[in-house]
Amino acid sequence: MKFVLEVTVDDGQPAKDRASELGRILRYWGGNLHHYALEPGDGSAVYDSAYREVGGWRIVATDGTA
């Protein structure tokens, strides 16, 4: 299986702020990892610190199917 994470970062922010926000998103997701079976088809939206949807993650089979 494959883990896919896609996050859109705000190009208008300084690089330091983008890195900080992405780090927060990764820590939050990592802390919630135990809530998922991590089987093909699992996934969830990803939110920034203002609770705006900025992407998502999903588990896909190695042949690319969900």
Rank of each mutant, 00 (worst) to 15 (best):
Y51E: 14
T62P: 08
G30F: 13
K2I: 13
T62M: 09
A37T: 09
V9F: 00
G31Y: 06
L5V: 13
R52L: 06
W57T: 07
G30L: 14
Y47D: 05
R58W: 03
G64D: 04
R24F: 14
A37Y: 10
I59A: 09
V46Y: 01
G43I: 03
L5G: 01
G64M: 05
G55D: 09
H35F: 11
L38P: 02
H34Q: 09
V60C: 03
D48P: 02
F3G: 01
W29A: 14
R24K: 10
G64H: 05
R52M: 07
V9W: 00
L38R: 05
R24V: 10
G64F: 07
L33T: 11
G31T: 08
D17V: 09
G31A: 14
L26V: 15
I59W: 08
E39S: 09
G43W: 08
S20A: 14
V4M: 10
A45M: 01
A15Q: 08
E6I: 08
G56V: 01
A37N: 14
A45Q: 05
P14V: 07
E6Y: 05
W57F: 14
R18V: 01
N32F: 13
A61M: 03
Y28A: 15
V54D: 08
L26A: 15
M1T: 13
M1Q: 05
I59F: 08
K16G: 02
S44N: 13
T65Y: 04
D63R: 06
A19Y: 02
A15K: 06
A66W: 15
G43L: 09
T8Q: 02
G23N: 15
L5H: 00
R24L: 12
D42K: 04
S44F: 07
L33D: 04
G56W: 10
P14I: 02
S49I: 13
P14K: 00
G31F: 10
D11E: 11
A66I: 11
A45R: 03
A45P: 05
S44V: 00
